[in-house]
C-alpha cells in the first residue's frame, strides 16, 4: 500500500503546483508592497517648487490625514491621474506633492497648465527623498494618518475606481 502511495506522490505534488499557478494568474507580479506601511514617514525636508506654495518636510505630515503624491512633468501617467487629484483637492482632501527628478521650469508649467491640487510641493531633485520613501515608479500615492504614519501606498496612476473603492474609504476611516 505505501508503495502505491509513493507512485501517487508526483500527481499530488503536480496538482499543488497547478493550484499555485491558478492563484498566481490572479496576481500582478509587478506590484510591490511598501515597507513603510504603519510606520512613520521617512525623515526628509524638501525646498518649495513654487513661491506661493511651501515646501515639504516630515513634520508637515503630522496633524491631518493627507495624501502624498509623487509626480513629475516627464511622467505621462501623472498627467492621466492629475484631474483625479484636483478633484480630490476640490473636495477638501489635503494633498502634498513630491516633485521627483524634474526640472523647475517644466514642473511649474505642468502645475500652471493642469492646476495645482497640492497644499505643499517639495522638490526632490536628486530623487534621494523618493528613495527614502521606497518609491520605485512614478506616480505613487501614499495615504498618511494624523500621526504622520504611512497607511497605504498606490503605485501607478490613480483611477476613479481606486479612489472610490480604496482611497476615499480609507481617508474617511482615518479622519474619524
Amino acid at each position: 500500500m505505501t508503495r502505491r502511495l509513493v507512485y501517487l506522490l508526483p500527481l499530488v505534488l503536480f496538482l499543488g503546483v497547478v493550484a499555485y499557478f491558478a492563484v498566481g494568474l490572479t496576481r500582478d507580479p509587478q506590484k510591490l508592497p511598501s515597507t513603510m506601511i504603519d510606520r512613520p514617514a521617512p525623515e526628509f525636508a524638501l525646498p518649495p517648487l513654487l513661491d506661493s506654495v511651501p515646501g515639504l518636510a516630515t513634520a508637515d505630515l503630522k496633524g491631518q490625514v493627507a495624501l502624498v503624491n509623487v509626480f513629475a512633468s516627464w511622467c505621462a501617467p501623472c498627467r492621466v491621474e492629475h484631474p483625479i487629484l484636483t478633484g480630490l483637492a476640490r473636495d477638501g482632501v489635503t494633498i502634498f506633492g513630491i516633485n521627483q527628478k524634474d526640472k523647475p521650469e517644466p514642473a511649474k508649467r505642468f502645475l500652471a497648465n493642469l492646476g495645482n491640487p497640492y497644499t505643499r510641493v517639495g522638490v526632490d531633485a536628486d530623487g534621494r527623498a523618493s528613495i527614502d520613501w521606497g518609491v520605485y515608479g512614478v506616480p505613487e500615492t501614499y495615504v498618511i494618518d494624523r500621526e504622520g504614519h504611512v497607511r497605504y501606498r498606490h503605485v501607478g496612476a490613480l483611477t476613479a475606481r481606486d479612489v472610490s473603492e480604496k482611497i476615499r474609504p480609507m481617508l474617511r476611516e482615518l479622519s474619524r
Partner: peptide
C-alpha cells in the same frame, strides 16, 4: 494574457495530471 495563461494551465493540468494519474495507477 491571462486568458491564454488559463488555457495553457488547463492544458498542462489535463496532459500532465492525466498522465501522472495513469502513472499512479499503472506504474506499481
Amino acid at each position: 494574457d491571462p486568458e491564454r495563461g488559463t488555457f495553457v494551465l488547463v492544458l498542462l493540468a489535463i496532459a500532465v495530471g492525466g498522465s501522472l494519474l495513469l502513472y499512479a495507477l499503472r506504474a506499481p
